[in-house]
Design a protein around this nucleic acid. Structure first.
Lengths: 205, 205
DNA sequence: GTCTATACAACGATAGAC
DNA sequence: GTCTATCGTTGTATAGAC
């Protein structure tokens, strides 16, 4: 089926680390395009120009490849978020900026939206990853809302934990609507604006 | 419109319908247990007691079987929702009751949460189904919030369309958190209570 | 350590017999 | 309407070239 490139065509064998990065790039792109389940290891390897057992030398399984993609993507996003917060940006403003950046990369949004739902199953290879991720984001949001509460800025009758879960739920849910309408007619959903409205709604009047 | 195309002119439907129902029952159960992708046609057919080409005689593809399951599930849910509204229940109270019922059926919640994310892709067999579903729910919510607005009950600065999208986003997002924590320690997430908090947050103070 | 080649069981789907 | 047989593709495992 595919014309497998020979090692010589790719510059020899001494490319271990570089090949790994190429695989990660290729996999992140393909997972984002067609989803994790639909993407095949043979297609990822073909795009890199190696055989699929060649890929499996760098990543022991498809699940391991997925996890590496997730960790890598998270490092990039987390770095941008941390930079914002370190620069003095308000926590929720920094969240809005994350959403703004995501709106520019539908492929990544699709990957995370699909995976966070799949990974809900305890047996899914990315389950522990997403569990930890949700715990972290919710904990940080609870802290921020608790500070609001102390300053009398949190809407009465809503606990910080519930507010935190609603914020995270809105970020997740908006992604699905954003993706669902991306090919349709009319103006596209502005996720960042909707998130701002949600933050306002949780603010004391 | 639907992809469940029957061979229009065919004689013997008498026994076919019963088998069809058995397949639908079995598929809905298995999809809910292990998810759409993990479930195999061979397993569904084995539970019914036929071969998998036998199943494919009733449903042209795995995707067509999925769509039939979704339509069937939706009819049941919609009937319960409509009954609530017909009995004079407020629109948002009826939504909360939908969520309450869902909390009793994690398998169905997982099926819908996973699929609504997957079906985001325009090529997915259930894409058109979910697109229509979202349009309907959002339209109904917009109507309800517009009535709120006329009565001065909608929080100032939030448009009915944005409020509607936030409600739907919260319902979707809470499902992911609910599923993600279902096997973990501690008390389980109360989706209905969180949805009530969200509705309160969108109410004029 | 890096990679190709090959084999395997399970999958969705199709063809044709009864 | 349901079967057996078969196809191409998938994730994965192993053997071995350099």
């Amino acid at each position: 089926m595919t014309a497998t490139a020979h090692p010589a065509a790719r510059g020899g064998y001494a490319k271990g680390r570089a090949t790994r990065e190429e695989i990660l790039d290729s996999a992140m792109r393909l997972f984002g395009e067609v989803g994790y389940h639909t993407a095949s290891l043979r297609e990822v390897s073909a795009r890199v120009g190696i055989s699929h057992p060649g890929l499996l030398h760098h990543f022991a399984s498809k699940a391991a490849l997925l996890e590496a993609v997730l960790v890598r993507r998270d490092e990039i996003d987390q770095a941008a978020f941390d930079a914002d917060v370190a620069a003095g940006t308000d926590f929720f403003d920094a969240l809005v900026r994350v959403v703004e950046r995501n709106a520019e990369r539908p492929g990544i949004v699709e990957l995370f939206a699909t995976l966070s739902a799949e990974a809900t199953s305890p047996e899914h290879p990315a389950h522990r990853y997403f569990e930890a991720r949700y715990r972290t984001v919710i904990d940080q949001s609870v802290s921020a809302f608790t500070r609001w509460q102390s300053a009398g800025r949190l809407r009465a009758g809503i606990e910080p934990l519930v507010a935190a879960r609603l914020i995270v739920a809105v970020m997740d849910g908006l992604q699905v609507q954003f993706l669902m309408e991306r090919d349709g007619p009319g103006a596209q959903l502005d996720m960042a604006a909707a998130l701002r409205a949600q933050i306002d709604a949780l603010r004391a009047p």
